[in-house]
């Protein structure tokens, strides 16, 4: 008999941008008819009544909530539904994501992981990339949302052959009961860059003097920096409690030295005391730095080295002879076994000691080349002798 029906569905086929972290979904069906056998239903006669009163499905979706109902009943419905949820329906509620600002290298995650720290795979959501021959499904991690994996994870090392220029991504959402396809609101374009330069080698430079804190090191990497790229290095020192940030833990270079061997280097300021060190580095495009406590440092490779002190300047000295006559001032001192770092020359200074602490210069700095020297023309007095090497280290 007289028949009417209606759906009240909060969200029908389509994609919706929702300015909230939850959304209310409702499917409500109702039908009514006059079950008059004169119209061929063979049921209780002549009475109009409403069926499927009430809400069939309702839920408040949070991120990653989904719902699927596949209707398998009569279609078309000829004599009142047997199933008040006479609808095939599939929905998923996702957090909006955005492509990273700046450039990514092949090792970096394309999108940040969702704030719950869990990797989510979404059924019937498939990521596509713009290949050399048009849109194509990505080879790995197709259903991951957000796509918190790297270019290498998705494509492997041959990713450069898969597409040209920047990486363009979108996802499609499908359901088994329809050929309709929904594409993501956004097409995400990800700019790519080379990863941090590969490590080449590291050489440590000892302190100049045994007691000075002016060691250094040279870090060599295998490629030059791009024009707007800088190398940021963070240095760790081994304290008695273990490795921690060195007192001056960072240096930045936007201009590496091109070494004769084809590598590119940065030489650290000569301000390091002897000890054990570790260095980590990464590059940054554009302005600003990367704080030494930024979490990105934790995952980077570290390179260890040791700065040693230079050899202490040492010598022996003895009186060779006193004055031969009264006030002839021909006394001699022999200085021998003079030791320092190799390839250094030496100077001595001779003081006359007056009282306990007062000295006056008797012979000013005089250089000598070998590891021994005889100091002549000394008068009868108390003498004090001091040596320095050509780097200014004293003994």
């Amino acid at each position: 008999g007289d028949y009417r029906n209606g759906y009240s569905v909060t969200h029908s086929t389509g994609r919706y941008q929702i300015n909230s972290n939850s959304v209310y979904i409702k499917i409500d069906y109702q039908e009514g008819y006059n079950d008059d056998p004169g119209y061929g239903c063979n049921g209780p006669c002549g009475q109009y009544s409403e069926m499927c009163n009430g809400v069939e499905y309702e839920s408040t979706f949070n991120h990653f909530s989904s719902y699927e109902n596949i209707y398998s009943g009569e279609d078309p419905i000829t004599c009142g539904t047997q199933d008040c949820l006479a609808i095939s329906y599939k929905a998923v509620f996702l957090p909006s994501i955005s492509a990273p600002v700046g450039k990514l290298c092949e090792k970096e995650q394309l999108f940040a992981q969702y704030s719950d720290g869990v990797n989510h795979n979404v059924n019937d959501l498939v990521w596509e990339f713009y290949s050399n021959t048009g849109w194509k499904e990505i080879p790995n991690h197709k259903n991951r949302y957000p796509l918190n994996v790297s270019l290498l994870d998705v494509f492997g090392a041959s990713w450069r052959t898969q597409f040209t220029g920047n990486l363009q991504l979108r996802f499609k959402y499908t359901a088994p009961f329809t050929s309709d396809v929904l594409y993501s609101f956004s097409t995400y374009t990800i700019s790519l860059t080379e990863c941090s330069p590969e490590f080449d080698s590291l050489s440590a430079f000892k302190t100049k003097c045994n007691y000075s804190e002016d060691g250094s090191f040279k870090l060599k990497v295998k490629r030059d920096l791009d024009s707007n790229e800088k190398l940021i290095m963070t240095l760790y020192y081994q304290y008695s409690t273990g490795f921690d940030l060195a007192p001056n833990p960072q240096e930045t270079s936007s201009n590496l030295f091109n070494e004769p061997d084809g590598s590119y280097s940065h030489t650290w300021s000569e301000n390091l005391p002897s000890g054990n060190y570790k260095i980590k580095y990464q590059t940054k495009i554009g302005s600003g730095g990367i704080s030494p406590t930024d979490p990105t440092w934790t995952t980077l490779s570290e390179y260890s080295f040791t700065i040693t002190n230079a050899r202490r300047v040492e010598f022996s000295a003895e009186k060779l002879n006193d004055e031969s006559c009264f006030e002839v001032e021909d006394g001699k001192i022999r200085v021998y076994n003079v030791i320092s770092e190799s390839n250094r020359s030496f100077s001595y200074i001779v003081y006359e000691v007056q009282g306990t602490n007062t000295v006056t210069v008797l012979k000013n700095w005089t250089s000598f080349a070998s590891n021994n020297v005889i100091i002549n023309n000394l008068k009868k007095t108390r003498l004090r002798l001091k040596l320095k090497d050509s780097q200014g280290c004293f003994a």
């Binding site: 007289d2 029906n5 029908s12 919706y16 039908e31 419905i77 000829t78 909006s96 309709d180």
Partner: peptide, 17 residues
């Protein structure tokens, strides 16, 4: 900010003879 994706298909109801 969130996104909702929905696909739905309804059977063809008849509206009476």
């Amino acid at each position: 900010q969130s996104e909702l994706y929905v696909l739905s298909v309804r059977p063809q109801n008849i509206t009476g003879p």
